[in-house]
Design a protein around this nucleic acid. Structure first.
Length: 201
DNA sequence: CCGCTAACATAATCAAACC
DNA sequence: GGTTTGATTATGTTAGCGG
């Protein structure tokens, strides 16, 4: 019963960019990891009313400010992070659709022109979170233990250091990405790896 | 089984805090 | 002014659910 064809699919995209250069795990992405610690957040099911409000807001402004996202979160009784994810997914979906149907659609001052409202566009974002050294210590320790924590682990960390779970998730994302970049360009004293291909661009 | 889409990933980039 | 690093984005993948 040597591995079905389906499971092979998961490993198919192995040799793409970084291959197996992850120092934190001997294996690849933690896909199909049904462990409790790596479980995803349960899928949110928006009601029609919620969707109506979200879509309406999206049509007016696909790049809402943080304040707007907070207001929406309060209005439809959902976490702000879900609003953010929803807008991300919606924009991606929309963009793909545009390619297929680039019909005339330029919005010609139909709405969103409230003179009383300043057009901050992408002005105000969430205030930058500053972590204390002890919080950082906890995060780094958790990262070394598991760089891909599931919702349960993230929530536990959030309570432990007193930071919203969404910030924990962002922190792990940034941390992982940074580690990848570090591996990419580090011709320094890391190791005598100047003997590699010597092919840079 | 399949389409839709929330959840999640990386990489690039913006930008605040800090020196 | 440069570095560090949190926040946001585009883009692509994984997975849950209803038809």
């Amino acid at each position: 019963m040597a591995l079905t064809a389906e499971s092979h699919r998961g490993i198919a995209r192995e040799g793409s960019l970084f291959s197996a250069s992850a120092p934190w795990s001997t294996q690849l992405l933690p896909v199909q990891d049904t462990t409790a610690a790596n479980r995803r957040r349960s899928r949110t099911k928006f009601t029609e009313d919620q969707l109506k409000i979200l879509i309406n807001a999206f049509n007016q402004k696909p790049y809402p400010s943080y304040a707007t996202k907070q207001r929406l979160a309060l209005e439809i009784n959902t976490e702000e992070s879900r609003i953010q994810i929803w807008f991300q997914n919606r924009r991606a979906r929309h963009r793909f659709q545009k390619r297929s149907e680039p019909e005339e659609h330029l919005e010609s001052s139909q709405d969103e022109d409230h003179p009383e409202e300043k057009i901050q566009s992408r002005g105000d974002r969430r205030c930058r979170t500053s972590y204390t050294s002890s919080q950082l210590h906890t995060l780094i320790e958790a990262f070394m233990n598991n760089p891909y924590p599931g919702i349960d682990s993230r929530q536990q960390l959030a309570i432990e250091i007193g930071v919203p779970e969404s910030r924990i998730q962002i922190w792990f994302q940034n941390r992982r990405s940074r580690c990848h970049v570090q591996r990419k360009r580090e011709p320094d004293e890391a190791l005598e790896q100047r003997q590699d291909q010597g092919q840079d661009l």
